[in-house]
Design a protein around this nucleic acid. Structure first.
Lengths: 167, 167
DNA sequence: TATTGTTATACTCTATAACTATA
DNA sequence: TATAGTTATAGAGTATAACAATA
Protein backbone atom coordinates (compact mmCIF):
# COMPACT_ATOMS: atom_id res chain seq x y z
CA UNK A 1 0.00 0.00 0.00
CA UNK A 2 1.36 3.39 -1.00
CA UNK A 3 2.10 6.05 1.59
CA UNK A 4 0.26 9.31 1.66
CA UNK A 5 2.17 11.98 -0.24
CA UNK A 6 3.97 14.51 1.94
CA UNK A 7 4.93 18.08 1.08
CA UNK A 8 8.48 19.41 1.54
CA UNK A 9 7.24 21.11 4.71
CA UNK A 10 6.36 17.61 5.99
CA UNK A 11 2.63 18.26 5.99
CA UNK A 12 0.95 15.14 4.64
CA UNK A 13 -1.36 15.82 1.69
CA UNK A 14 -4.24 14.09 3.39
CA UNK A 15 -7.75 15.01 4.37
CA UNK A 16 -7.25 13.37 7.75
CA UNK A 17 -4.16 15.30 8.67
CA UNK A 18 -5.58 18.58 7.46
CA UNK A 19 -8.86 18.11 9.28
CA UNK A 20 -7.12 17.16 12.49
CA UNK A 21 -4.65 20.03 12.29
CA UNK A 22 -7.10 22.71 11.17
CA UNK A 23 -9.72 21.45 13.59
CA UNK A 24 -7.28 21.87 16.42
CA UNK A 25 -6.31 25.37 15.33
CA UNK A 26 -9.93 26.37 14.84
CA UNK A 27 -10.99 25.10 18.25
CA UNK A 28 -8.22 27.10 19.87
CA UNK A 29 -9.22 30.23 18.01
CA UNK A 30 -12.81 29.87 18.97
CA UNK A 31 -11.93 29.21 22.55
CA UNK A 32 -9.80 32.35 22.68
CA UNK A 33 -12.41 34.46 20.93
CA UNK A 34 -15.05 33.28 23.36
CA UNK A 35 -13.11 34.30 26.42
CA UNK A 36 -14.33 37.92 26.50
CA UNK A 37 -17.88 36.58 26.41
CA UNK A 38 -17.14 34.62 29.55
CA UNK A 39 -17.87 31.20 28.11
CA UNK A 40 -15.83 28.12 27.39
CA UNK A 41 -16.66 26.28 24.17
CA UNK A 42 -18.19 23.53 26.27
CA UNK A 43 -20.40 25.96 28.14
CA UNK A 44 -21.47 27.48 24.87
CA UNK A 45 -22.43 24.04 23.66
CA UNK A 46 -24.53 23.41 26.72
CA UNK A 47 -26.28 26.78 26.48
CA UNK A 48 -27.14 26.10 22.86
CA UNK A 49 -28.82 22.87 23.83
CA UNK A 50 -30.71 24.40 26.71
CA UNK A 51 -31.91 27.16 24.40
CA UNK A 52 -33.08 24.62 21.86
CA UNK A 53 -35.06 22.58 24.39
CA UNK A 54 -35.87 24.45 27.57
CA UNK A 55 -36.88 22.77 30.76
CA UNK A 56 -35.09 19.49 30.30
CA UNK A 57 -33.56 17.80 33.31
CA UNK A 58 -29.82 17.80 33.88
CA UNK A 59 -29.52 14.13 33.21
CA UNK A 60 -31.61 14.23 30.06
CA UNK A 61 -29.22 16.88 28.77
CA UNK A 62 -26.19 14.93 29.93
CA UNK A 63 -27.50 11.92 28.06
CA UNK A 64 -27.94 13.93 24.86
CA UNK A 65 -24.46 15.37 25.09
CA UNK A 66 -22.86 12.11 26.14
CA UNK A 67 -21.28 13.39 29.35
CA UNK A 68 -21.45 11.80 32.80
CA UNK A 69 -23.98 13.33 35.22
CA UNK A 70 -21.26 14.19 37.71
CA UNK A 71 -19.57 16.49 35.22
CA UNK A 72 -22.85 18.11 34.40
CA UNK A 73 -23.09 19.36 37.96
CA UNK A 74 -19.94 21.48 37.82
CA UNK A 75 -20.83 22.72 34.35
CA UNK A 76 -24.27 23.89 35.43
CA UNK A 77 -22.93 25.25 38.73
CA UNK A 78 -20.54 27.53 36.90
CA UNK A 79 -23.18 28.86 34.54
CA UNK A 80 -25.70 29.33 37.33
CA UNK A 81 -23.20 31.28 39.42
CA UNK A 82 -22.73 33.64 36.53
CA UNK A 83 -26.46 34.00 36.14
CA UNK A 84 -26.70 32.48 32.69
CA UNK A 85 -28.61 29.37 33.60
CA UNK A 86 -31.30 28.56 36.13
CA UNK A 87 -32.20 25.34 37.91
CA UNK A 88 -35.93 25.20 38.48
CA UNK A 89 -37.74 22.58 40.54
CA UNK A 90 -39.96 20.21 38.63
CA UNK A 91 -43.43 20.27 40.15
CA UNK A 92 -44.06 16.65 39.15
CA UNK A 93 -40.83 15.18 40.53
CA UNK A 94 -38.92 16.90 43.27
CA UNK A 95 -35.66 15.14 42.41
CA UNK A 96 -35.46 16.81 39.03
CA UNK A 97 -33.86 20.16 38.18
CA UNK A 98 -35.21 21.66 34.99
CA UNK A 99 -32.72 23.86 33.16
CA UNK A 100 -33.68 27.22 31.71
CA UNK A 101 -31.78 30.11 30.19
CA UNK A 102 -31.83 33.45 31.95
CA UNK A 103 -31.89 36.74 30.04
CA UNK A 104 -28.17 36.99 30.78
CA UNK A 105 -27.69 33.53 29.27
CA UNK A 106 -29.56 34.63 26.18
CA UNK A 107 -27.33 37.69 25.88
CA UNK A 108 -24.20 35.56 26.22
CA UNK A 109 -25.50 33.28 23.52
CA UNK A 110 -26.06 36.25 21.23
CA UNK A 111 -22.56 37.53 21.85
CA UNK A 112 -21.15 34.08 21.20
CA UNK A 113 -22.97 33.97 17.87
CA UNK A 114 -21.19 37.16 16.85
CA UNK A 115 -17.88 35.69 17.87
CA UNK A 116 -18.58 32.58 15.81
CA UNK A 117 -19.23 34.70 12.75
CA UNK A 118 -15.99 36.58 13.27
CA UNK A 119 -13.94 33.42 13.68
CA UNK A 120 -15.57 31.95 10.59
CA UNK A 121 -14.84 35.06 8.61
CA UNK A 122 -11.18 35.16 9.58
CA UNK A 123 -10.78 31.44 9.01
CA UNK A 124 -12.21 31.67 5.50
CA UNK A 125 -10.69 34.99 4.53
CA UNK A 126 -8.62 33.30 1.84
CA UNK A 127 -11.67 31.74 0.18
CA UNK A 128 -14.30 33.43 -1.95
CA UNK A 129 -17.93 32.71 -1.18
CA UNK A 130 -18.28 30.01 -3.83
CA UNK A 131 -15.23 28.18 -2.48
CA UNK A 132 -16.54 28.42 1.05
CA UNK A 133 -19.87 26.92 0.02
CA UNK A 134 -18.08 24.20 -1.85
CA UNK A 135 -15.92 23.42 1.16
CA UNK A 136 -18.92 23.23 3.47
CA UNK A 137 -20.69 20.89 1.07
CA UNK A 138 -17.74 18.54 0.96
CA UNK A 139 -17.30 18.60 4.74
CA UNK A 140 -20.99 17.98 5.33
CA UNK A 141 -20.83 15.02 3.04
CA UNK A 142 -18.17 13.52 5.28
CA UNK A 143 -20.01 14.60 8.41
CA UNK A 144 -23.21 12.89 7.31
CA UNK A 145 -21.43 9.59 6.97
CA UNK A 146 -18.87 9.74 9.74
CA UNK A 147 -20.53 11.58 12.62
CA UNK A 148 -23.26 10.05 14.75
CA UNK A 149 -24.87 13.19 16.14
CA UNK A 150 -24.07 16.04 13.77
CA UNK A 151 -25.22 18.74 16.19
CA UNK A 152 -23.01 17.52 19.02
CA UNK A 153 -19.33 18.29 19.13
CA UNK A 154 -17.73 15.15 20.54
CA UNK A 155 -15.22 17.27 22.43
CA UNK A 156 -17.90 18.03 24.96
CA UNK A 157 -17.96 14.37 25.93
CA UNK A 158 -14.41 13.32 25.56
CA UNK A 159 -13.49 10.56 27.94
CA UNK A 160 -9.78 10.40 27.27
CA UNK A 161 -8.31 13.57 28.69
CA UNK A 162 -5.27 13.75 26.47
CA UNK A 163 -6.20 11.56 23.63
CA UNK A 164 -5.49 11.88 20.02
CA UNK A 165 -4.89 15.55 19.81
CA UNK A 166 -1.57 15.20 18.03
CA UNK A 167 -1.81 14.14 14.40
CA UNK B 1 -24.32 40.88 12.19
CA UNK B 2 -26.19 37.80 11.01
CA UNK B 3 -25.85 34.49 12.79
CA UNK B 4 -24.41 31.48 11.11
CA UNK B 5 -27.14 29.31 9.65
CA UNK B 6 -27.89 26.16 11.60
CA UNK B 7 -29.40 22.93 10.30
CA UNK B 8 -32.41 21.29 11.95
CA UNK B 9 -29.98 18.85 13.58
CA UNK B 10 -28.38 21.90 15.23
CA UNK B 11 -25.13 21.51 13.36
CA UNK B 12 -24.02 25.00 12.33
CA UNK B 13 -23.38 25.35 8.59
CA UNK B 14 -19.94 26.72 9.20
CA UNK B 15 -16.44 25.80 8.16
CA UNK B 16 -15.23 26.40 11.70
CA UNK B 17 -17.67 24.06 13.36
CA UNK B 18 -17.20 21.36 10.76
CA UNK B 19 -13.41 21.55 10.94
CA UNK B 20 -13.44 21.42 14.71
CA UNK B 21 -15.91 18.58 14.86
CA UNK B 22 -14.44 16.48 12.06
CA UNK B 23 -10.93 17.22 13.27
CA UNK B 24 -11.84 15.84 16.66
CA UNK B 25 -13.42 12.74 15.19
CA UNK B 26 -10.50 12.17 12.85
CA UNK B 27 -7.93 12.52 15.61
CA UNK B 28 -9.77 9.96 17.67
CA UNK B 29 -9.96 7.54 14.78
CA UNK B 30 -6.30 7.87 14.04
CA UNK B 31 -5.41 7.45 17.67
CA UNK B 32 -7.45 4.25 17.87
CA UNK B 33 -6.08 2.90 14.63
CA UNK B 34 -2.55 3.54 15.79
CA UNK B 35 -2.95 1.58 18.99
CA UNK B 36 -2.06 -1.83 17.52
CA UNK B 37 1.13 -0.27 16.19
CA UNK B 38 2.04 0.68 19.74
CA UNK B 39 2.26 4.41 19.12
CA UNK B 40 0.34 7.42 20.29
CA UNK B 41 -0.28 10.13 17.71
CA UNK B 42 2.20 12.29 19.54
CA UNK B 43 4.87 9.60 19.44
CA UNK B 44 4.20 9.12 15.76
CA UNK B 45 4.74 12.83 15.25
CA UNK B 46 8.03 12.71 17.05
CA UNK B 47 9.25 9.67 15.14
CA UNK B 48 8.42 11.39 11.86
CA UNK B 49 10.57 14.33 12.82
CA UNK B 50 13.45 12.19 13.97
CA UNK B 51 13.27 10.27 10.72
CA UNK B 52 13.33 13.49 8.72
CA UNK B 53 16.36 14.88 10.52
CA UNK B 54 18.41 12.26 12.31
CA UNK B 55 20.86 13.04 15.03
CA UNK B 56 19.29 16.20 16.37
CA UNK B 57 19.43 16.91 20.08
CA UNK B 58 16.39 16.52 22.26
CA UNK B 59 16.05 20.20 22.82
CA UNK B 60 16.48 21.10 19.16
CA UNK B 61 13.60 18.74 18.43
CA UNK B 62 11.57 20.10 21.34
CA UNK B 63 12.07 23.58 19.96
CA UNK B 64 10.87 22.56 16.52
CA UNK B 65 7.78 20.88 17.90
CA UNK B 66 7.08 23.60 20.40
CA UNK B 67 7.04 21.38 23.47
CA UNK B 68 8.88 21.99 26.76
CA UNK B 69 12.12 20.04 27.23
CA UNK B 70 10.80 18.36 30.34
CA UNK B 71 8.02 16.71 28.41
CA UNK B 72 10.44 15.60 25.77
CA UNK B 73 12.20 13.44 28.35
CA UNK B 74 9.20 11.24 29.09
CA UNK B 75 8.31 11.06 25.42
CA UNK B 76 11.76 9.87 24.42
CA UNK B 77 11.99 7.58 27.46
CA UNK B 78 8.88 5.74 26.37
CA UNK B 79 10.06 5.27 22.81
CA UNK B 80 13.52 4.25 23.89
CA UNK B 81 12.12 1.63 26.27
CA UNK B 82 10.24 0.12 23.39
CA UNK B 83 13.35 0.12 21.26
CA UNK B 84 12.10 2.55 18.64
CA UNK B 85 14.41 5.42 19.41
CA UNK B 86 17.99 5.67 20.54
CA UNK B 87 19.83 8.34 22.54
CA UNK B 88 23.41 8.55 21.35
CA UNK B 89 26.11 10.63 22.96
CA UNK B 90 27.35 13.58 20.96
CA UNK B 91 31.13 13.36 20.62
CA UNK B 92 31.48 17.13 20.46
CA UNK B 93 29.33 17.98 23.50
CA UNK B 94 28.81 15.47 26.25
CA UNK B 95 25.64 17.17 27.50
CA UNK B 96 23.80 16.44 24.27
CA UNK B 97 21.76 13.32 23.39
CA UNK B 98 21.40 12.87 19.67
CA UNK B 99 18.22 11.09 18.66
CA UNK B 100 18.20 8.31 16.08
CA UNK B 101 15.61 5.84 14.87
CA UNK B 102 16.24 2.16 15.43
CA UNK B 103 15.21 -0.46 12.89
CA UNK B 104 12.21 -1.15 15.13
CA UNK B 105 11.35 2.53 15.01
CA UNK B 106 11.52 2.45 11.24
CA UNK B 107 9.20 -0.54 11.15
CA UNK B 108 6.72 1.19 13.44
CA UNK B 109 6.78 4.22 11.18
CA UNK B 110 6.06 2.05 8.18
CA UNK B 111 3.13 0.40 9.93
CA UNK B 112 1.83 3.81 10.97
CA UNK B 113 1.93 4.94 7.36
CA UNK B 114 -0.31 2.06 6.42
CA UNK B 115 -2.70 2.95 9.20
CA UNK B 116 -2.81 6.55 7.99
CA UNK B 117 -3.77 5.42 4.52
CA UNK B 118 -6.53 3.24 5.92
CA UNK B 119 -7.96 6.01 8.07
CA UNK B 120 -7.82 8.39 5.13
CA UNK B 121 -9.58 5.91 2.93
CA UNK B 122 -12.39 5.30 5.39
CA UNK B 123 -12.77 8.98 6.11
CA UNK B 124 -13.10 9.85 2.44
CA UNK B 125 -15.13 6.83 1.38
CA UNK B 126 -18.08 9.05 0.53
CA UNK B 127 -16.02 11.22 -1.83
CA UNK B 128 -14.81 10.40 -5.31
CA UNK B 129 -11.19 11.11 -6.14
CA UNK B 130 -11.91 14.48 -7.77
CA UNK B 131 -13.86 15.62 -4.72
CA UNK B 132 -11.11 14.49 -2.42
CA UNK B 133 -8.50 16.45 -4.38
CA UNK B 134 -10.76 19.48 -4.39
CA UNK B 135 -11.25 19.23 -0.64
CA UNK B 136 -7.53 18.96 -0.02
CA UNK B 137 -6.88 21.98 -2.20
CA UNK B 138 -9.38 24.07 -0.27
CA UNK B 139 -8.05 22.92 3.09
CA UNK B 140 -4.46 23.60 2.07
CA UNK B 141 -5.44 27.10 1.06
CA UNK B 142 -6.69 27.70 4.57
CA UNK B 143 -3.70 25.92 6.05
CA UNK B 144 -1.25 28.10 4.15
CA UNK B 145 -2.74 31.23 5.60
CA UNK B 146 -3.77 30.12 9.07
CA UNK B 147 -1.12 27.68 10.22
CA UNK B 148 2.37 28.74 11.20
CA UNK B 149 4.20 25.46 10.78
CA UNK B 150 2.23 23.32 8.32
CA UNK B 151 4.18 20.18 9.11
CA UNK B 152 3.61 20.40 12.86
CA UNK B 153 0.34 19.37 14.39
CA UNK B 154 -0.24 21.87 17.20
CA UNK B 155 -1.73 19.14 19.35
CA UNK B 156 1.74 17.90 20.08
CA UNK B 157 2.47 21.13 21.87
CA UNK B 158 -0.78 22.04 23.45
CA UNK B 159 -0.31 24.06 26.60
CA UNK B 160 -3.88 24.08 27.82
CA UNK B 161 -4.66 20.54 28.90
CA UNK B 162 -8.40 20.71 28.42
CA UNK B 163 -8.81 23.67 26.22
CA UNK B 164 -11.17 24.35 23.44
CA UNK B 165 -12.03 20.83 22.45
CA UNK B 166 -15.76 21.38 22.54
CA UNK B 167 -17.15 23.31 19.62
C1' DT C 1 28.02 32.01 33.88
C1' DA C 2 25.14 29.50 30.42
C1' DT C 3 23.14 25.32 28.53
C1' DT C 4 21.45 20.19 28.12
C1' DG C 5 18.88 17.06 29.94
C1' DT C 6 16.50 15.40 34.20
C1' DT C 7 13.65 15.22 38.27
C1' DA C 8 10.30 17.10 41.73
C1' DT C 9 6.23 19.31 42.52
C1' DA C 10 1.86 21.36 42.29
C1' DC C 11 -2.14 22.03 39.48
C1' DT C 12 -6.10 20.96 36.45
C1' DC C 13 -9.32 18.02 34.56
C1' DT C 14 -11.34 13.70 34.56
C1' DA C 15 -14.23 9.32 35.62
C1' DT C 16 -15.82 6.24 39.23
C1' DA C 17 -18.37 5.34 42.80
C1' DA C 18 -20.38 6.40 47.19
C1' DC C 19 -24.02 9.13 48.97
C1' DT C 20 -28.85 11.91 49.71
C1' DA C 21 -33.33 12.77 48.72
C1' DT C 22 -36.96 11.58 46.52
C1' DA C 23 -39.92 8.16 43.91
C1' DT D 1 -35.75 -1.00 44.97
C1' DA D 2 -34.67 2.53 41.54
C1' DT D 3 -33.55 7.16 39.96
C1' DA D 4 -31.89 12.49 39.91
C1' DG D 5 -28.50 14.96 41.42
C1' DT D 6 -24.35 15.67 44.33
C1' DT D 7 -19.91 15.04 46.55
C1' DA D 8 -15.47 12.58 47.45
C1' DT D 9 -11.61 10.65 45.65
C1' DA D 10 -8.00 8.89 43.01
C1' DG D 11 -5.72 8.93 38.58
C1' DA D 12 -3.66 10.89 34.35
C1' DG D 13 -1.27 14.58 32.10
C1' DT D 14 0.64 18.97 32.34
C1' DA D 15 3.91 23.19 33.07
C1' DT D 16 7.14 25.30 36.17
C1' DA D 17 11.08 25.44 38.27
C1' DA D 18 14.88 23.47 40.77
C1' DC D 19 18.78 20.48 39.83
C1' DA D 20 23.29 17.97 38.10
C1' DA D 21 26.61 17.60 34.59
C1' DT D 22 29.07 19.82 31.18
C1' DA D 23 30.43 23.79 28.49
Amino acid sequence: MADLPTSPDRSPRSVGFLLSQLGFVTSGRFSDALEPVGLSPREWSLLRFVAAAKGQSQQALAEQLGIPPSRMVALVDALEERGMLERRPDPGDRRVRALHLTPEGRRALARAAKVAVEVESRLCSVLDEAEREQLIDLLQKIQAEQVDRPGVHPGIARDHPARGRAE
